[in-house]
Design a binder for these strands. Structure first.
Lengths: 174, 174
DNA sequence: ATTACCATGTAAGGGGTTACATGATTCC
DNA sequence: GGAATCATGTAACCCCTTACATGGTAAT
């Protein structure tokens, strides 16, 4: 049920069309809560029907601009403060680790090597976006910086873990 | 499509019934790839139909015991070595961070305090299971230990991040 | 006998993905 | 005029969750 809240959240920055929101979902939210066009347009319809947003303007090319209503803002605040975030489940990569004994040691090591590389790569992407938005975030988007820091620490953790795991494997092999 | 591979993976440890597998999904796999009864029985049926597992025994109480076929093992290996794990997406908690500016500073700080507490709690649970399985894992379940270590490092990262974020907020508030 | 546990299945509904479909406007 | 972009919508399909439904077996 969080696409709904992601949309409400984005509308706190100002009115926007489905198309506008989609750019954000594919941009800064891509690593946190991606959404497809199909899904978003459907959800905006439901949000309007539920009175959490309203159409404030109909522009060219059937463009509809949506704005948050009081009820929408209330729902967003409720979600932020009263609803417990779900703990992370379903980790594709870790599931594979569980069964890595099925293939031989070399392939196990290669798997971990790849994870290490992927973490490095992902981290450098995050650093790139960090530098791209650095100027304007003197104190403006504190929470944006905090979210980004999570990504940096996560990828760093993954990198170190994968390196450690390779050593463990080497030890176990002797 | 990973429930299928989780089931195949578990069957490499020996034949088992849907009910047996379910205990594992609710036990050691709960933090990695949970599955419901309803879903699992359905998937086992599809796996049998696809020839990746076979019913090796029909016991009391309609119990069916499944075993991996050669095709099933091949599919599992293929998934382990050739299919790239999906990078983690959709983080409920981080999505909230993005919009935390909507509520006041105190509530923002409380949110982060809760995350810190949750990380501590989750980590101590992991340590408990670590000690519970320690004796038998001298070198037996290397990959199990490696997966567990991921959890310990993840929760530690989250704890430190949440603490850091609270400091950043305090700084930004002055 | 009753309770607890073993054991499997179906149905309804939500959320997500991919693909299909359509048309308006802007820019070259 | 043609291509790129803006802009919205529908349909089919898969995965997952919750709830409902049924019955066998073991232990007290």
């Amino acid at each position: 049920m969080s696409l709904r809240h992601a949309a409400l959240g984005l509308l706190t920055f100002g009115p926007a069309s489905g198309y506008d929101l989609l750019q954000t979902f594919n941009g800064s939210l891509a690593n946190v809560w991606p959404a497809t066009q199909s899904q978003l347009y459907g959800e905006l319809g439901k949000l309007a029907e539920a009175g959490l947003v309203t159409v404030t303007e109909e522009g060219a090319r059937r463009r509809k601009e949506y704005a948050l209503t009081d009820a929408g803002l209330a729902e967003l605040k409720h979600w932020l403060t009263d609803v417990e975030p779900t703990v992370l489940r379903r980790n594709d990569m870790l599931l594979r680790v569980f069964f890595l004994g099925v293939v031989d040691h070399e392939q196990g090591e290669e798997f971990l090597r790849k994870r290490e590389g992927q973490a490095v790569e992902h981290q450098s992407e995050l650093r790139a976006t960090q530098e791209a938005i650095a100027p304007e975030t003197a104190d403006l988007a504190v929470y944006g910086r905090i979210a980004l820091e999570w990504g940096l620490r996560y990828t760093e953790m993954q990198r170190q873990w994968a390196a450690w795991a390779q050593e463990e494997l080497a030890k176990a092999r002797k």
